[in-house]
Simulated assay, not measured.
Amino acid sequence: MPINRTTTDDHEIAWQESALCAQTGPDFFFPDPGSSTREAKRLCAACEGREACLEYALTHDERFGVWGGLSEKERYALRRRG
């Protein structure tokens, strides 16, 4: 069954089409536990969609992976401070 998204939803994730992570693979952004997130964060730092990505992750309570240049623990700490 196809998912019907609203225009708002499409706008909300439009950044994903040009994001550097879309041109890489999920391994960088969802590393095995204990693995380094350094390479993912380096790509995020160079990505034009970084802020939108981070906002998306915080809004949707993404609990795994690197989003917007922050790891799960870093996003959790940011939420607690906010």
Rank of each mutant, 00 (worst) to 15 (best):
P31M: 06
W15R: 11
T59P: 00
A52D: 10
G69P: 00
T6R: 07
W67R: 01
L78T: 07
L58Q: 10
G25H: 12
P2Q: 09
P31T: 05
F28K: 03
E51T: 11
G25N: 15
A22G: 12
S71P: 00
N4E: 12
T6M: 05
E74Y: 06
A46M: 14
H60D: 00
S36A: 15
R38T: 14
A14M: 08
A77M: 06
R81M: 10
D32F: 06
N4I: 15
V66N: 01
T7M: 11
E17I: 07
C44I: 10
D61A: 14
E51N: 09
K73N: 07
A22Q: 12
W67L: 03
N4F: 06
E74M: 06
E12H: 11
M1Y: 11
E48V: 02
R81V: 09
G65R: 03
E72F: 09
A77K: 04
P26V: 08
E55D: 12
A22H: 11
I13C: 03
E12A: 14
C53L: 04
R80P: 01
Y56I: 05
I13K: 06
D10K: 12
R38S: 14
T59L: 05
A57T: 03
N4V: 15
R50Y: 01
F28L: 15
L20F: 04
C21S: 00
D10E: 15
I13G: 00
N4L: 15
T24Y: 13
E17R: 14
R50L: 04
T8C: 02
L78Q: 09
P31A: 05
G49V: 08
H60I: 00
T24S: 15
E62Q: 15
I3F: 08
N4G: 01
R5M: 13
A46H: 11
E51S: 12
S35F: 08
E39H: 02
R50H: 04
F28E: 07
T8Y: 08
R75M: 10
S18Y: 11
A19N: 04
E39D: 04
E17K: 13
P31E: 02
E12D: 13
G25R: 11
G68P: 02
K41S: 06
R50M: 11
A14W: 09
A40K: 02
G69A: 03
A40E: 02
F64T: 10
H11I: 05
Y76M: 09
F30E: 09
Q23Y: 03
W15I: 11
